[in-house]
């Protein structure tokens, strides 16, 4: 009996540590705000992303200073006045996905991602549809969701409120490769 339990224990430990982790340091996150007054676009191509296809969880991490804007002044305002990247340099996401992904078969799989987005020292739960594409040793994740600046305690002065959309569209594209 003791031996069986020990075996069970080892099996469980093994089971849980067994994973297929896909990684990238060059994932893309972009966001877009459209108002009649002004369009604001920003991209970050230095996003760290990891997908554990065994445990079906995933994580993103990025430096807010890595976002480049079409206008230098917007970038300065974004970092200094809105996300305060000196105080809170990172934004991150950690969550799980549901849906079947057959890693042995190339193809696009629809999944639902659920998790916590941390920005400006505020953590908020987010659920969004997403796709995972299996392409040999690559796992490419894409998603689009909307976020409100006010949800993350980012205050926008009334004078410029009309220039920033109520909801910001966020695009994600992460081409992860299997960690050997």
């Amino acid at each position: 009996m003791k031996k069986i339990l020990l075996f069970l224990l080892l099996l469980m430990v093994y089971c849980c540590s067994y994973s297929q982790v896909y990684l990238t340091r060059t994932a893309y996150v972009g966001f877009f705000s459209k108002t009649p007054a002004e369009d604001i676009k920003a991209v970050n191509n230095q996003v760290y992303a990891a997908v554990d296809a065994g445990k079906k969880n995933l994580a993103f991490s990025l430096l807010l200073k890595g976002f480049t804007f079409t206008k230098e002044l917007m970038q300065e305002h974004f970092n200094e006045n809105y996300v305060e990247s000196d105080k809170y340099p990172k934004a991150s996401f950690s969550g799980t996905y549901t849906g079947d992904v057959d890693l042995t078969k190339n193809g696009v799989y629809n999944v639902t991602v659920q998790g916590n987005l941390t920005l400006h020292n505020i953590t908020k739960a987010i659920t969004t549809p997403a796709t995972l594409e299996v392409k040999d040793t690559h796992l490419i994740g894409t998603a689009t969701f909307k976020a409100k600046p006010e949800d993350f305690n980012i205050t926008i002065p009334s004078l410029v409120r009309g220039k920033i959309a109520q909801e910001i569209t966020v695009n994600i594209n992460a081409d992860c490769t299997l960690k050997q």
Binding site: A50, D52, A59, S61, K90, S92
Partner: peptide, 11 residues
């Protein structure tokens, strides 16, 4: 622990 380990690894 599994939820944060990936994030810790990225950090």
């Amino acid at each position: 622990a599994q939820d944060s380990t990936l994030l810790n690894m990225l950090s």
